[in-house]
């Protein structure tokens, strides 16, 4: 009987002992020092693929473009303050200081998230964001006036500011390791070095709004083109018309900035709209590409999308 009693007695004692242990820890909120939360918040932010927080301050500093974050204003009612530095096609360096209201940023994100997928989202985001970008547009105007930029020079200055920020793939799905021959990493920030950054699960259509782009600098073809288009439209300098272009190139479906202007620097690539206006294509994703320049060999099914 002694051995018979053994299993049940030992098992029972072990059970109640463990229950007592767990109950004491749970109810007395004992901290046995096994929880190490020291760097937990930091680690989570660094690994968060959706986060735009630059914990390591790695954002491109040596590139011709520099995005500097002023974090001195931490109040929710304050602004996002940013400084962009870049070099235009003619080698001239420019600096743009601008600020965007945090509330405008939130509104912009909500507008994007609540939109349905499709090219209509561009028009919706443009109309929603243009007022929030007024200060930035004025700063561009100041640069134009200060540097006495005329005609295409002004447009070059604006578009080169967008081109100089490194490409970041924006996708409504999970980030791929490799797409159209380019390597990507799950880091939603402009990166100086390969692989390029990628923002995954940006819903509904894998595009950021112009205000989101201005604040975070993360954008791919349609995000960058939409931002450039918004700025050019709001600058309203009178000698051109800016719209969005969408079509197919070597890498697949692509979006570009379209500018209807007399005497463009190149006339190789253009798309004609319903009223026979020629919108010259401007590649906004990488530096050095000028208006109307031949960038892609494949050029099919291109249309103008009026915002």
């Amino acid at each position: 009987m002694g051995k018979k009693n053994n299993y049940f007695s030992i098992g029972s004692k072990l059970f109640w002992g463990l229950i007592l242990l767990v109950t004491v820890f749970a109810l007395l909120k004992l901290n046995p020092g096994i929880f190490n939360g020291e760097n937990t918040a930091r680690d989570i932010i660094v690994e968060d693929s959706l986060s735009k927080v630059n914990w390591e301050e790695e954002i491109v500093k040596e590139d011709s473009s520099e995005i500097k974050k002023d974090t001195s204003l931490k109040n929710n009612d304050d602004f996002y303050v940013r400084t962009w530095r870049w070099e235009s096609y003619d080698g001239k360096n420019y600096t743009l200081n601008f600020k965007i209201k945090r509330s405008d940023y939130s509104k912009s994100s909500s507008c994007r998230e609540s939109s349905s997928a499709g090219v209509e989202i561009w028009s919706k985001m443009y109309n929603n964001d243009k007022s929030g970008l007024k200060q930035m547009v004025n700063e561009y105007k100041n640069i134009i006036i200060k540097n006495n930029l005329n005609g295409i020079e002004a447009l070059n200055m604006v578009v080169s500011s967008v081109q100089s920020i490194p490409y970041v793939l924006i996708t409504p799905e999970d980030c791929p390791d490799n797409a159209f021959g380019v390597r990507f990493t799950n880091d939603c920030r402009p990166r100086k070095n390969q692989p390029d950054g990628c923002c995954g699960f940006v819903l509904p259509w894998g595009v950021y709004s112009p205000i989101e782009y201005a604040v975070n600098g993360s954008g791919d073809c349609d995000t960058k083109s939409l931002f450039a288009c918004t700025i050019l439209k709001e600058l309203n300098l009178g000698f051109y018309e800016a719209e969005m272009l969408i079509g197919e190139v070597d890498a697949g479906t692509h979006a570009m900035l379209g500018v209807n202007i007399l005497n463009p620097p190149y006339t190789n690539r253009y798309v004609t709209d319903i009223t026979r206006n020629k919108f010259y294509a401007w590649e906004a994703t990488s530096p050095g590409n000028e208006l109307g320049q031949h960038v892609w060999n494949t050029w099919n099914n291109w249309v103008v999308v009026h915002l």
């Binding site: 986060s51 735009k52 927080v53 630059n54 974050k69 974090t71 996002y80």
Partner: peptide
């Protein structure tokens, strides 16, 4: 709490 403070100070509003 730390996470919230960091996100606020870096302007990460979504989280």
């Amino acid at each position: 709490e730390q996470l919230k403070n960091q996100y606020i100070s870096h302007g990460e509003t979504w989280m």
